[in-house]
């Protein structure tokens, strides 16, 4: 009951308010073009009919939510999955490079973190640069990476995945450094009294202690990785994927298509973050965390 009162009702009300504002905004933003259309056709609809027209334009400035939902439903469930128009197909293209980049990024981040924790000179010399690297808008490098790699014959999944890697290694590295350093001095001393070696301390104490940190940062990393994959699709000339769908939509001003591609991207993001969360919970339970 408290969940209903504290979460569901407030969220539902806010969502309803957003939708209401959206519909009203759609009337006003689509009105000028609709008036022009009606003038040309010498029509003078009454207010109700006019509002209905603004919510049913072909290429509206701001599509109404039901138009987006309709388009999303059609392109997800009613088009063959192998078709170019299918959002499932395009999401899969983006998802595959996201996952590859995420895997690279996670591995790279963990390796960097292990290095930083164990080699003091790396901690001092590399850590400031890792932090500085994130103040650089790394997405600015995306088109160059793609074009340059294409020039030496590397195309397809890898260049996009590299951009995802670039964006996703940072949260993992920072989170893992924190996690590997999280065992407190008492536990480290205990390992010392057991005469445990560096490797044993690492596997039996530091790694288990870092797991919650790892999954928290992986949630951030997977979202960043998706952004990288979408941006990586822009300069390749809109072949396939959610980013390509956005670019094609902006070329032909098919706004409804763009919005439904955005919805698809959001669904993928939510699913990815949720999946990482579920895996994290599972691993923690397996390791004996109390629910």
């Amino acid at each position: 009951m408290t969940a209903l009162r504290d979460r569901i009702i407030p969220v539902a009300v806010v969502v309803a308010a957003i939708l209401a504002v959206w519909y009203i905004a759609a009337i006003f933003m689509n009105a000028p073009y609709q008036r022009e259309l009606n003038d040309r056709a010498h029509e003078t609809p009454d207010l109700r009919a006019f509002i209905g027209q603004t919510w049913a334009q072909n290429k509206p400035t701001l599509p109404a939510p039901h138009q987006i939902a309709e388009n999303f439903f059609k392109n997800t469930f009613q088009v063959k999955i192998t078709s170019r128009r299918s959002l499932v197909y395009n999401s899969w293209v983006t998802l595959s490079s996201t996952l590859l980049g995420f895997a690279f990024g996670t591995v790279l981040g963990i390796l960097i973190a292990v290095g930083i924790v164990h080699v003091p000179v790396l901690d001092r010399s590399l850590m400031p640069w890792i932090i500085a690297s994130q103040t650089i808008p790394i997405l600015a490098i995306a088109p160059m990476v793609i074009v340059v790699l294409a020039a030496i014959g590397v195309t397809g999944l890898i260049p996009k995945a590299l951009i995802s890697t670039y964006l996703s290694f940072f949260p993992v590295a920072v989170g893992m450094v924190k996690g590997l350093r999280s065992p407190d001095i008492l536990h480290l001393d205990l390992m010392h009294t057991y005469n445990a070696g560096k490797a044993q301390t690492f596997w039996k104490l530091r790694v288990p202690a870092s797991v919650p940190f790892l999954f928290t940062s992986m949630k951030v990393a997977v979202a960043a990785s998706l952004v990288g994959a979408i941006v990586g699709e822009l300069p390749t000339g809109a072949v396939a994927g959610i980013g390509a769908k956005l670019l094609a939509g902006s070329y032909y001003s098919q706004t409804i298509d763009m919005w439904s591609a955005l919805v698809a991207g959001s669904v993928v993001a939510v699913l990815l973050v949720a999946a990482v969360g579920v895996v994290g919970r599972f691993v923690e339970l397996k390791m004996g965390a109390r629910p």
Binding site: T61, V231, S253
Partner: peptide, 18 residues
């Protein structure tokens, strides 16, 4: 919290249009 995880960057073409 949900929106923070979404690829908001995708609204760029829509904003350019507006």
């Amino acid at each position: 919290n949900l929106v923070s995880a979404l690829p908001i960057i995708g609204i760029a073409p829509i904003m350019v249009m507006w």
